[in-house]
Amino acid sequence: MFRGLIIATALVAGLSSVAAVAQNNVIAERQQLMKGLGQAGRAPAAMLKGEQAFDLAAVQTTLKTFADSAKKAPTLFPAGTETGNETAALPKVWSDKADFEAKWAKFAADAEAAQGAIKDEASFKATFPNVVRACGGCHEGYRAKKN
């Protein structure tokens, strides 16, 4: 009886630590995805500021990363990952899930539309800033301040 209890406790503890690891992995995965978005945006941002020569192929690669990541992102905020692993996601991600997911969908759609719309430097300068406006638009409600 007593041994059974110990085994059961150990099993539960083991299972919940497996679950905790899985949750931490999801949090790490979405943090990686966000970092990837930032990295992808750096070259076009430098082009906008005139610090780097315009490169259509590089811009298109970035937009593809944006669209692909934006489609994947909503799956990386499952219930149970509200806290831990230094997540900066605010509770509103879960309490206002419909809006959160709609914002990702709009970002994906905007990035895809921009792939068609951007053909040269002029169309890049006209379109790209509108695509990345999504970043601040979403961070305002869904991400905590961080150093």
């Binding site: 970043c135 601040g136 961070h139 305002e140 991400r143 301040k145």
Partner: peptide, 23 residues
């Protein structure tokens, strides 16, 4: 100055929470 104008850091991260509104 760029962060104040657009909300983007040099790493192309974008500021969150009420700082997005300050921008």
């Amino acid at each position: 100055s760029e962060l104040l104008a657009t909300g983007f850091t040099p790493d192309f991260d974008s500021v969150g929470s009420s700082m997005a509104d300050v921008v």
